[in-house]
Design a protein around this nucleic acid. Structure first.
Length: 216
DNA sequence: TAGGCCATCTGGTCCT
DNA sequence: AGGACCAGATGGCCTA
């Protein structure tokens, strides 16, 4: 992908463009002064306008007068840039590999559509929260069951508490998401889900399900 | 065709 | 000095 820029390098190598376009002394002074301004890339080699020689006659004269050592410096800079590009590419590939591994441990969606990067991160966030919340509530269940006086009407015993792998957890693996859910930005430590045991009831379980799979 | 997503390049900054 | 990380820019692809 993005072959245009790659072609650009081959263009440079095939000298369809002047080598001095790779990096000029003038660009050095510009880049060091303005930082990463939005328009800075227009001056960069990746700009499609790179091969449109808009240099003034004075600048062209200056280029022609460039000595061998100066050309060598530019070749070194070009090589450094290419190496940096290579590292950056590998870095992003590693990042994508990690995202793929994260996708693989998340419940698969029925339609088997691949989650986008942001969806993956948000879904993972909610998924982790849901799992930790389930553990916390199961622990609470266990504690309260030890003290019968704390039992609420209709509340089950410890054995009734859901455990990972049980049907009560099926919502985690049968997750489906609406097309435009709203992303939960609440802190996992302060969940928006009711803390009583009612969430184990069908209707509450449904909202819990929706929350856990809310990836936006 | 507009908008979303993605890969890539790039220069700046920070760290070792 | 060189590498890692980051954010901005750009262009390609896909879909509604």
């Amino acid at each position: 992908m993005c072959t245009s820029v790659e072609n650009l390098y081959s263009d440079l190598d095939s000298s369809s463009c002047d080598l001095s376009y790779v990096h000029t002394d003038d660009e050095d002074s510009r880049s060091s002064s303005h930082g990463a301004s939005p328009s800075s890339s227009l001056d960069q080699p990746s700009s499609p306008a790179i091969c449109q020689d808009s240099a003034t006659p004075e600048q062209k004269k200056k280029r022609r007068g460039r000595g061998k050592s100066e050309v060598a410096v530019h070749v070194v800079k070009k090589n450094r840039r290419m190496k940096a590009n290579d590292r950056e590419r590998n870095r992003m590939h590693n990042l994508n590999d990690a995202l793929d591994k994260l996708r693989n441990v998340l419940p698969a969606f029925p339609d088997d559509t691949k989650l986008t990067k942001i969806e993956t991160l948000r879904f993972a966030h909610n998924y982790i929260w849901a799992l930790s919340e389930t553990i916390r509530i199961a622990d609470q269940c266990q504690e309260k069951s030890r003290d019968p006086s704390l039992m609420l009407p209709g509340m089950g015993r410890v054995a009734d508490a859901p455990s990972p792998g049980s049907d009560a957890f099926s919502w985690l693996s049968s997750a489906s998401t609406s097309s435009s859910p709203s992303y939960c930005t609440s802190n996992p430590s302060s969940p928006a889900v009711s803390e009583d045991y009612g969430f184990l009831q069908a209707d509450s379980l449904y909202s819990y399900h929706n929350f856990a799979t809310n990836i936006y």
